[in-house]
Simulated assay, not measured.
Amino acid sequence: MTAVQAKFQLDQPGVADGAAIWRIARDSKVLDLNSSYSYLLWCRDFAATSAVARDENGEVAGFVTGYTRPDRPGTLVVWQIAVDAAHRGHGLAGELLDGLAARVVAERQVTTVETTITPDNEASQALFHSFARRHGAGVERTVLFDAGLFPDDGHLPEELYRIGPLAPAA
Rank of each mutant, 00 (worst) to 15 (best):
M1I: 08
M1H: 09
M1P: 07
T2G: 15
T2K: 09
A3E: 14
A3S: 14
A3H: 12
V4C: 14
V4H: 09
V4L: 11
V4I: 15
Q5W: 04
K7M: 11
F8W: 07
D11S: 12
G14F: 13
V15H: 06
D17G: 11
D17L: 06
G18K: 02
G18C: 10
A19F: 05
A20V: 03
R23W: 09
I24G: 00
A25M: 05
A25D: 11
D27R: 07
D27I: 06
S28N: 06
N34E: 14
N34P: 01
S35Q: 08
S36K: 11
Y37P: 00
Y37V: 11
Y37L: 13
D45T: 10
F46Y: 14
A48D: 13
A48C: 04
S50H: 06
A51G: 00
D55H: 01
G58K: 03
G58S: 08
E59P: 01
E59I: 02
V60L: 01
V60W: 01
V60I: 10
A61L: 02
G62K: 00
G62Q: 00
F63T: 05
V64F: 01
T65L: 15
T68L: 11
T68N: 08
D71G: 04
D71K: 07
R72C: 13
G74F: 03
G74A: 11
T75K: 00
T75V: 15
L76G: 03
V78A: 08
W79L: 06
W79C: 04
I81H: 00
I81R: 00
H87S: 03
R88K: 05
L92H: 03
L92M: 08
A93C: 01
E95G: 04
E95A: 15
L96D: 03
L96H: 08
G99V: 10
L100P: 01
A102S: 12
A102R: 07
R103M: 02
V104K: 00
V105I: 15
E107W: 02
R108D: 13
V110I: 13
T112V: 15
T116M: 07
P119Y: 08
D120R: 11
D120T: 14
N121M: 09
E122D: 15
A123N: 12
S124D: 08
S124G: 08
Q125K: 12
L127Y: 07
H129T: 13
S130A: 15
S130N: 12
S130T: 14
F131A: 04
F131W: 07
R133M: 11
R134K: 13
H135S: 12
A137H: 05
G138V: 07
R141T: 15
R141E: 14
T142E: 15
T142Y: 11
V143I: 15
L144E: 14
F145K: 07
D146I: 03
A147S: 12
P151N: 05
P151Y: 02
D153S: 12
H155K: 13
H155P: 00
L156P: 03
P157C: 04
E158Y: 06
R162G: 03
R162F: 09
I163E: 10
P165K: 09
A167Q: 11
P168N: 08
A169V: 09
A169S: 13
